[in-house]
Computed example of a mutant assay.
Amino acid sequence: MMEQTALQLFVLSIGASFVQRTTGFGFGIFIMTMLPAIMPSYGEATTLSGILAMTTSAIIVAQKYKYVNWPRLWPILLTFIIVSFGAIFVLKRMEYGILSILLGITLVAVSIYFAFFSKQIKVKTTMPVQVTAGALSGVMGGFFGMQGPPAVLYFVSSEPDKEHYLAQTQTYFLVGNVMMTLARAYNGFFTSAVGMGYVYGITGVLIGNLMGAWVFRHITGNLLKYIIYAYIGISGLTFLFG
């Protein structure tokens, strides 16, 4: 049984890390479709997802750090940290069924809207926009361990090219996951099962990162946007029919 769990975590980590490295997000969306069935509790699943995603982001940030623009990053990042902390602290008292349905509908609608109207959408790096994106991301990160879509839609529309986009998103996810991991540990979600899961998954993270880096070098900025919109839509469908 333990060998089967180790293999499942290894394969899931390859897929999740590949998606994250290729599109700039999606680790949690990919792995959380199956991880809760493997881990002892939902809280432990979100914790393991967070620390594996944190490792993926750390590798990318080390490679792309020179592209990080901190003035554009701090407002959305600080908002995310505050809101996600609140979400994690009420996680034990939440019912996920209705929230999952609403989240799925929202993700599908947003992906369709951006796919067809992205050329007309010009996201400005204003404080209200950053705070709104950070708050939505915080809610999704705290409750579901998948804070990507709101932040990604902001960064992919506001950053000048795919290198800046990747640097901004991965720095955002790295810092955010560090802070959420501390909050989850405080709430008792960082257990020995999470530690063993990390051991099983870390090699898969490294392999998926290498595969995704190769793909990222060969896709254009416009194609990247449509891949992102499509993946957000697919993730919404998993919530509705998973």
Score class of each variant (00 low, 15 high):
2 M>L: 14
2 M>A: 14
3 E>T: 12
3 E>G: 03
3 E>D: 14
4 Q>K: 14
4 Q>P: 00
8 Q>Y: 09
8 Q>P: 00
10 F>Q: 05
11 V>F: 11
12 L>D: 08
12 L>G: 10
16 A>C: 07
19 V>I: 14
20 Q>N: 13
21 R>S: 15
21 R>N: 14
22 T>R: 03
23 T>Y: 04
23 T>C: 12
25 F>L: 09
27 F>C: 07
31 I>H: 08
31 I>D: 11
37 A>M: 05
41 S>I: 01
43 G>W: 00
48 L>T: 11
50 G>Q: 04
54 M>V: 02
56 T>I: 01
57 S>C: 12
57 S>D: 06
58 A>L: 08
61 V>S: 02
62 A>G: 13
64 K>P: 01
65 Y>F: 09
66 K>V: 04
67 Y>R: 03
67 Y>H: 14
73 L>M: 13
76 I>F: 04
76 I>Q: 10
77 L>T: 09
78 L>A: 13
80 F>T: 13
84 S>F: 01
87 A>R: 12
87 A>W: 01
88 I>D: 02
92 K>R: 12
96 Y>R: 12
96 Y>L: 15
97 G>V: 04
98 I>T: 13
99 L>I: 08
102 L>N: 03
102 L>Q: 00
104 G>S: 07
104 G>D: 04
105 I>R: 00
106 T>Y: 12
107 L>D: 05
107 L>Y: 11
110 V>E: 12
110 V>R: 00
110 V>T: 15
113 Y>E: 09
116 F>D: 04
120 Q>R: 13
120 Q>P: 03
121 I>G: 06
121 I>K: 06
123 V>W: 02
124 K>Q: 14
125 T>V: 05
125 T>I: 03
126 T>H: 10
127 M>D: 05
130 Q>S: 15
134 G>P: 11
135 A>P: 09
136 L>E: 02
136 L>V: 00
137 S>D: 08
140 M>F: 07
140 M>T: 10
145 G>P: 07
146 M>Q: 11
148 G>I: 00
151 A>S: 13
151 A>F: 03
152 V>T: 15
154 Y>D: 01
155 F>N: 07
160 P>M: 11
161 D>N: 14
162 K>M: 03
164 H>I: 01
165 Y>D: 12
166 L>Q: 11
166 L>K: 14
169 T>S: 13
173 F>N: 13
174 L>M: 15
176 G>L: 03
176 G>H: 04
176 G>S: 13
177 N>C: 00
179 M>Q: 06
179 M>Y: 02
180 M>R: 11
181 T>F: 02
182 L>C: 06
183 A>H: 02
185 A>V: 01
185 A>G: 10
186 Y>I: 06
188 G>E: 07
190 F>I: 00
192 S>H: 15
194 V>A: 04
195 G>D: 01
198 Y>T: 11
200 Y>A: 09
200 Y>E: 08
204 G>S: 11
205 V>R: 12
205 V>L: 13
206 L>G: 02
207 I>R: 07
207 I>K: 06
212 G>D: 07
213 A>N: 14
216 F>M: 10
222 N>V: 13
222 N>A: 07
223 L>R: 15
226 Y>R: 15
226 Y>G: 04
230 A>V: 05
231 Y>S: 07
232 I>H: 10
234 I>V: 11
236 G>E: 12
239 F>M: 05
